[in-house]
Design a protein around this nucleic acid. Structure first.
Lengths: 373, 373
DNA sequence: TCTGTTGCCGAAACCGGTTTCGGATCTTCT
DNA sequence: AGAAGATCCGAAACCGGTTTCGGCAACAGA
């Protein structure tokens, strides 16, 4: 007995489910005929089609999707592998994302097969398992990298997929993405419009496509406003509060510090609040902050975080629709869609209350007084 | 052509997947023999079993789970229907819950089929759809009610399930639950130990089993400490910040107000912070707060919320293990498990700084001064 | 009237597995 | 040596659907 033997399960109540043969028999038709009637084949007369349809409803018949799948090769399920590591920012809006996917899937009478993984390697393993057993007909790939091994794997195995994000080589890829670079650009312009002239930026983590795009957005924002490109104003990558705090502190203790900070991610911005506090600065007054993600928790901070909000439910819906179309054979080039984030102005940004020089003096005084204690 | 016709999908690349027949042919065996070898039947010699196993690995064979399901009746998938309504508190720890389920499912080579619904009625509809197409072999039912229609439905259809929670009639039910009533009881005792003598309680919403249990926990906590049962100290049910604020405000503006509040849910406690602020009270000093859920966001508040933390990953793992055993035929009575929440002492509770009478004076003075403005 | 079409359905193969049944070999015992 | 078991595997049925193929009947056209 190998371990496989133990995997087998006994059939429980074996309750009597209405099969297509039952239905056919009670109608006096061949089961093939019933199948074609239910699936809308043109060689079935309208009258029998209706007769079958009504009988099916009356008898409560619904086909087993896996029985259909054995012949059609389609299990009517979209796959999603989530990475649940700490620095993973999509946890907060996970519920609405899943709701969007599930909603769109239900609409087409599909379902969602979900799995989680703890690392990039694990993700590939899990993906391999799901593909191997054909648990899903295609996959939504969240948080894509510029060079993404998942894409290579799925391409090689001819498994349909759609990216939530973009990637370096668009060949064969369908996607839906939020143009966060546009949002970051807008953030810079908003701050410029309020009078800020030194605007710092805390990027995301290397590798993620969105990180590079947001950095581009920052640069193009500066260019649009006629501000010089000052490399020292670009902090270290951060996607969580700890890293965000470190990055913000580094920027705010520069000799010529920024009076406003733009964060790539809300969770990093949360750390920015801590950094400001420890430097004796009040966000929204002494230093402006604009961020990206639109997390609800940002509203609980004081002042509430100004941020670009993303409609994750809608993202889930669109991704699912695109994926199903992709599975049905449409070309990936025709399945690409971009959307915009929406600015939620709350209390963390405003006009600069001091010049960079004054800010620097404030900070160094505060640091000195802390040093004495 | 009915709408059903459009649902059919074309088979794409039709890539050549290794079937059990391929494997059998290349081994010179009958496919039935190969199947029995892989599934550990005792009538296969050890030598052929190994030969088959190695060949399967070499050729990269993995059975289609839906092809197996057609004969065995088991699709190797656990089902979960989440309700994503606003007042739904489990959104924040959803990721770890799902990770737990997925992890335990993978361990047994099962997968997770997830769906969402927007209301109780919708939940039943979605559940019906999944059961109808046999998308899962059994279900995890989160957030159970004392009288839960989902339970009736699944029982009637002989579909295995396991509760995350408890219910009025335990007949035929397997479950895993956190004894939150014990936690609430402990919360009362902790506050009593610090010197509080009037301790208010904000329950959850009617219907949920956990709400009633936590209320019981509150009462038994009072009894254990020898405190009288004062009905006016029990606020209105609240599971979100808005309702929590209203409930807390009502309690704190009593003639003889509590100096400490116990909340059934963190999200309600968040509203308690707002209520305290608007009444000019500082949580942790003027009024103590202890809550339940262990949300990470509570740590971002100032002072950080003292709360009972629940290991949702572990809950997911145990629920899945219990469900799979249930599906394999074990009796529900043998599949019941309770666990405890863990107290996370942070900054929102402490010794009372004033008597209820002084507190009442403070509050009424604050209200008057607000009235004048 | 005879021949094509066309419309409609039955019969059977098929999908990729699992499970039952029976039979051939190989031991073991008398 | 012959009979009785035990061991191991092949053949075929089966699960619940889908799809192909062919034939019958009705109808149209010549």
């Amino acid at each position: 007995m190998t371990d496989l033997a133990q995997r087998r399960v006994t059939i429980p109540g074996r309750r009597q489910r209405v099969t297509i043969s039952d239905l056919a028999e009670s109608l006096g038709l061949a089961k093939g005929t019933v199948s074609r009637a239910l699936n809308g084949y043109p060689d079935i007369s309208e009258s029998t089609r209706l007769r079958v349809k009504h009988a099916a409803e009356a008898m409560g018949y619904s086909p087993l999707s896996h029985a259909q799948a054995i012949r059609t090769g389609v299990v009517r399920s979209v796959g999603l592998v989530l990475q649940t590591t700490e620095h993973d920012g999509h946890r907060p809006f996970l519920a609405s994302f899943l709701a969007g996917i599930s909603e769109a899937a239900s609409e087409a009478d599909w379902s969602l097969t979900l799995a989680t993984a703890s690392s990039n390697e694990d993700t590939e393993r899990v993906l391999g398992r799901l593909v191997g057993a054909h648990k899903a007909d295609g996959f939504i790939l969240p948080r894509t990298y510029m060079d993404d091994p998942r894409i290579d794997f799925l391409k090689k195995n001819h498994v349909p997929f759609v990216l939530f994000g973009r990637t370096r080589d668009p060949e064969g890829c369908a996607w839906y993405d939020i143009e966060s670079e546009v949002a970051i650009e807008e953030a810079v312009c908003i701050l410029y419009g309020l009078g800020h002239r030194r605007i710092g930026f805390v990027p995301g983590r290397d590798g993620y496509t969105f990180s590079e795009l947001r950095l581009e957005g920052y640069r193009s924002g500066l260019a649009m406003c006629g501000l010089p490109d000052a490399p020292e104003l670009i902090g270290q990558g951060a996607l969580n509060p700890e890293a965000g705090e470190a990055a913000a502190r580094e920027l705010l203790t520069l000799e010529n510090p920024p009076t406003a900070l733009v964060f790539s991610a809300d969770r990093a911005a949360f750390g920015g609040y801590t950094a400001a506090e420890t430097l004796g600065l009040k966000i929204g007054r002494d230093v402006s902050v604009v961020s990206y993600d639109g997390l609800l928790e940002g509203g609980m901070l004081s002042p509430a975080l100004s941020t670009f909000s993303v409609d994750m439910r809608q993202a889930g819906v669109r991704l699912t629709e695109l994926l199903i179309r992709r599975i049905r054979g449409e070309a990936p080039e025709d399945l690409r869609e971009l959307a915009q984030a929406r600015f939620v102005a709350r209390g963390s940004h405003g006009q600069p209350s001091m010049s960079p020089a004054e800010l620097a003096r404030r900070v160094s005084k505060e640091l000195k007084s802390q040093g004495r204690n």
